[in-house]
């Protein structure tokens, strides 16, 4: 299987879907002649032309809404947000129009659209450019929310998102784009709504998604050396949550740590805890632990920036806590 960078995997998914379906077009800032702020759309303008790879003005609300309108009448827009921080300006169109069109029209309309772009911490970019905002979108009925961690999932889930009949919000990662991984060629579609056990284990379940996945795998490696077998469950989709996969893993290991880049209050992890406590309370041998970003704004200074985010040592400490092996 070929090794591709995360950004190349996304590029492949876009190109394949645009080849397959002329209703698909890509719009966003810098996606055309500049080949994408993060080079996800490299080469696509030359290949598909200026009506299908569209350089938008810096008008997030405007081009998001315009794309929703195009989706209402049969096109399948992919809207690239340079980062999700900027998409806050477009939130009205996503939440009040895209997510509600089918409902308000009593089932007459559908809105097959993908909003995608990088989320999470950048790297020395301070607070306005470093936020994990997926919990905001996971809140809304009428949307689907995905956050793949690996290049293979990035490709497969973007293809699934483009083919979906509903608005899909896709969180990529500014710091994932250059990561490499094996990516199946051609028709590789990863269904939305299915979590993936990325590492099997028996002592504890670590639940995560997106970039935090890599810290969880690092922690699991180190824990293995201490004789602790950690299962890593990559949610991949945050709305709808894969309850079945979550509960199956909890029933197997009886101990859970949830790792989330964003803030704890009203985070996605809080909802996962709620599912576990209401449906698998008797299977738990310890309270569920959460490792989240600290409840502060992100700083520029390297030490503050690092301390704000979850990392492998924090995850290891949480695992030991649920195993009652603190200080071990």
């Amino acid at each position: 299987m070929p090794e591709l960078m995360y950004r190349e995997a996304l590029n492949q998914a876009l190109a394949e879907e645009m080849e397959r379906d002329a209703n698909v077009f890509l719009i966003g800032e810098e996606v055309g002649r500049y080949n994408g702020a993060f080079k996800v759309s490299q080469g696509l303008l030359d290949r598909f032309g200026s009506a299908r790879i569209i350089d938008a003005p810096i008008s997030e609300l405007g081009f998001a809404g315009m794309s929703v309108g195009a989706a209402m009448v049969g096109l399948r827009p992919v809207v690239e947000m340079m980062t999700w921080n900027f998409a806050i300006l477009a939130m009205d169109q996503i939440v009040n129009n895209a997510a509600k069109l089918r409902h308000m029209s009593g089932g007459q309309l559908r809105c097959p659209i993908v909003f995608r772009g990088p989320g999470g911490a950048g790297g020395r970019l301070s607070s306005q450019h470093s936020q994990a905002l997926e919990a905001n979108y996971a809140h809304f009925p009428g949307l689907k929310v995905i956050a793949p961690a690996t290049p293979a999932d990035a490709k497969g889930m973007l293809k699934a998102a483009i083919r979906d009949e509903n608005p899909v919000i896709m969180f990529e990662g500014e710091r994932l784009y250059a990561l490499k991984g094996e990516v199946p060629e051609g028709e590789h579609v990863v269904p939305i709504g299915k979590a993936d056990v990325k590492r099997e284990g028996t002592d504890v379940t670590i639940i995560t998604w997106s970039r935090m996945y890599y810290f969880c795998m690092e922690a699991a490696e180190q824990l293995a050396q201490e004789g602790i077998s950690a299962e890593v469950l990559d949610l991949r989709t945050l709305r709808p949550l894969d309850e079945e996969a979550i509960l199956a893993s909890v029933r197997k290991t009886n101990r859970v740590v949830i790792v989330e880049e964003g803030w704890a209050l009203a985070g996605v992890g809080a909802s996962v805890v709620d599912i576990i406590q209401s449906k698998a309370f008797d299977d738990l041998d310890a309270p569920v632990e959460r490792v989240t970003g600290l409840d502060v704004n992100m700083s520029y200074a390297a030490n503050l920036e690092n301390a704000t985010q979850p990392d492998a040592p924090k995850i290891i400490a949480a695992v030991k806590k649920v195993l009652y092996r603190e200080g071990a």
């Binding site: 809404g65 315009m66 129009n97």
Partner: peptide, 24 residues
Amino acid sequence: FYGGYGIVGGQIPLAAGMAFASRY
């Protein structure tokens, strides 16, 4: 008739998108 919208000005970009689809 593609709807009545309750957020003041929210339908303005939608219309451009529908017109975009016609040109496309």
